[in-house]
Nucleic acid binder design. Structure first.
Length: 118
DNA sequence: TACTTGACCGTAT
DNA sequence: CATACGGCCAAGT
C-alpha cells in the first residue's frame, strides 16, 4: 500500500542521514528528521533507531537530544557505551551532555570559525 | 477499535 | 534549572 511505501522510504532516508554524520560530530533527532524530509517528526527517528536490527551498522552514538543530552537513562549500559564511543571520536561529554555549538552537525566549530565561504 | 508509550521538540511558566 | 503542555506518529497492549 501507499502508506507502507512511504514509511519504508522514510525509514531508509532516516538511516541514510544518520550514516552521513561524520565521526567526531553529533546530530539531534530533530535535525536528522528534517534532513530526511520529515520535519517535526523527531520521535520517528528514535523509533527507527530503536527498531533497526543490529546487522545494519549505524553511528547511533552520534545521536543526541536537541539540548545535547544523551537520550538514554544516565548510568544505563547504552548510556555508558555511547559516552565511550563519543569520547573515542574526540567528542567531549560532560554529565551525559555534549556541547552542540562545538560538535553539532550544522553548527560545528569549523563552520563558526571558517564559515561556508572563507 | 481505543488507549498508552516512547532513543523527541518547542514554547511557556 | 525544572516542570508542564501540546504536537508528532509508529508500535505495542
Amino acid at each position: 500500500m501507499l502508506t507502507a511505501m512511504f514509511n519504508q522510504s522514510a525509514i531508509a532516508a532516516i538511516r541514510r542521514c544518520i550514516a552521513q554524520i561524520p565521526a567526531g560530530s553529533v546530530a539531534s533527532y530533530g535535525a536528522i528528521a528534517a534532513r530526511a524530509g520529515l520535519p517535526g517528526r523527531a520521535r520517528m527517528v528514535g523509533s527507527v533507531l530503536r527498531q533497526t536490527p543490529d546487522d545494519i551498522d549505524l553511528p547511533w552514538h552520534r545521536m543526541m537530544r536537541a539540548d545535547g543530552r544523551i537520550a538514554f537513562e544516565a548510568g544505563s549500559a547504552e548510556f555508558i557505551e555511547q559516552v565511550q564511543r563519543l569520547r573515542a571520536e574526540g567528542v567531549t561529554v560532560n554529565n551525559g551532555r555534549v556541547n552542540l555549538a562545538e560538535h553539532g552537525l550544522e553548527s560545528n566549530l569549523d563552520a563558526l570559525l571558517w564559515g561556508p565561504g572563507s
